[in-house]
Design a protein around this nucleic acid. Structure first.
Length: 444
RNA sequence: GGCAGCGUGGCCGAGUGGCUUAGGCAAGGGACUGCAAAUCCCUGUACGCGGGUUCGAUUCCCGCCGCUGCCUCCA
């Protein structure tokens, strides 16, 4: 049985969906004002892993992930670049999904946009005002967190403690520094929507409550995000639901951050905190493997070395795939490997161990030409979202002709000629390997 | 200042009160090969520092040092 760490309870707990066999997940998605960075990449791989594993375990998964397309940063960028903010959000969203496709991320079942839920958000805010848990100031509407039962659940702190940690804010109309904006009144030139409390735009924390409850209903199973969202974002989402008397997420799934040694990173890698740049420079699967080799709640460090390391490991997997592709159809996966994998994953998604079982299966397959182990390796790789390349890449005829020339030279024991052709092909970027079937060539 | 976490062999990164003490990459040796490549086999170097608990700690407790994240927009 799957066990997951629940941030609210602060412990690994058995996962039991409210409806047997079905899992509903809401995962905080990107604010579309720029290209995805490495943190987004890890974030999406974490979600993807959770979804794939739940699906493989037999659950019917409904996965909702939003697009935040109203935000101060979007407005700021639009102003700086003197173009409509919708241009930025549309373009960034396209770039986002293209990038995630490259990373092998499954698309969400639903992708609600904040701009598509403004009416519902206004209605929620109005209800909170009517209940007297929200109050208006000269620049917006705020939630009074002191009235929220259990505020601090996710921050794991008492109200006083949280308050003392809060930075001093310019806004003195707020009753507490912890109170947060549900609605921001529009300043001249800012995008705005009509509302009874004045034209403006919703605060960030409001969209996720409204959209998750609308699409998944009260008491949905899992709310996911980076641990930087734990507080205040998720705390504040929950606060709104609680303030309205509604049940919110049953389990909080938070993953760790990507850490980049600023100096080291910038020197060795250049501007690869941009995920798209990283995927241009390295195999996207290597990034995924790098993420999977650490536990989802641990921090990971991305560097030139760690990416090269991961690429070498991917090459090993691809070599395995070439060897066994097409030979495992209908073969039952080795049960022992699958069981080890499942045990690791059921224990709070211990992917480091899961990856180790994958490589163990690969090793056993290679060693004894063990088809059951090979089938297990393919299955595990699939659940982890690692697409192995077993298909022979297309090779130009002239290159194949040279390979045949080499076979002839080798048959004639003309080693000088054979070596010369190999050098020639290698210089052209091909990997040359001799097999029982003669010279094979593939892209390097 | 508050909260949370981390410090493992050349590197990345698991794990465990004692047992053959993951896995990947790199290194060295060997098998295979005309030579390679791929693959397989073998090998080395470990648990930040100081105490404590224990028959025994890398694993538990305390202190220290170092590092990180959150507390403000953030995946």
């Amino acid at each position: 049985m799957l066990h997951l760490f629940d941030t609210a309870r602060g412990a690994v707990v058995p996962f039991e969906p409210s409806t047997p066999g079905k899992v509903s997940i809401y995962a905080c998605g990107p604010t579309v004002y720029g290209p995805p960075h490495l943190g987004h990449g890890r974030n999406q791989v974490s979600y993807d892993l959770l979804r794939r594993y739940l699906a493989w375990s037999g659950f019917e998964v409904t996965f909702v992930s939003n697009i935040t397309d109203i935000d101060d940063k979007i407005i700021e960028r639009a102003r700086n670049e003197e173009r409509p903010w919708q241009d930025i959000t549309r373009r960034c969203e396209d770039v986002w999904f293209q990038g995630m496709d490259r990373l092998g991320i499954l698309r969400p079942d639903h992708t609600p946009h904040a701009t598509g839920y403004v009416d519902e958000m206004v209605a929620l805010i109005q209800r909170l005002v009517d209940r007297d848990v929200a109050y208006a100031t000269s620049d917006g509407v705020y939630l009074d967190v002191s009235q929220v039962e259990g505020y601090g659940l996710l921050a794991h702190g008492e109200l006083d403690q949280l308050r003392s940690g809060a930075r001093i804010e310019a806004n003195e109309e707020k009753r507490s520094p912890l109170d947060f904006a549900l609605w921001k009144l529009a300043k001249p030139g800012e995008p705005s929507w009509p509302a009874p409390f004045g034209d403006g735009r919703p605060g960030w924390h409001t969209e996720c409550v409204v959209m998750s409850l609308d699409l998944l209903g009260e008491g949905f199973d899992i709310h996911a995000g980076g641990n930087d969202l734990q507080f205040p974002h998720h705390e504040n989402e929950r606060a709104q639901a609680v303030a309205e008397g509604k049940r919110f997420a049953n389990l909080w799934f938070h993953h760790g951050m990507v850490e980049i040694d600023g100096e080291k990173m910038s020197k060795s890698l250049g501007n690869v905190s941009n995920l798209l740049d990283l995927m241009d420079a390295y195999d996207p699967r290597a990034f995924r493997l790098l993420v999977l080799r650490a536990h989802y709640r641990s921090p990971i460090d991305v560097s030139d070395d760690s990416m090269r390391d991961a690429e070498a490991a991917i090459a090993r997997l691809d070599g395995f795939a070439r060897r066994f592709a097409g030979r495992v159809d209908g073969v039952d996966a080795d049960p022992a490997s699958i069981e080890r994998f499942r045990t690791a994953m059921d224990d709070d998604l211990k992917t480091p161990t899961a990856v180790a079982t994958l490589f163990d299966a690969v090793n056993r397959a290679n060693k004894d030409d063990d088809l059951e182990a090979a089938a297990a390796a393919f299955e595990i790789a699939g659940v982890l979202g690692l697409e192995l390349r077993g298909e022979a890449a297309s090779v130009p005829d002239e290159v194949l002709a040279r390979a045949r020339d080499r076979d002839e030279a080798r048959a004639a024991k003309d080693w000088a000629a054979a070596d010369q052709i190999r050098d020639e092909l290698t210089a052209a970027g091909w990997v040359v390997e001799d097999t029982a079937d003669g010279t094979t060539v593939r892209p390097g």
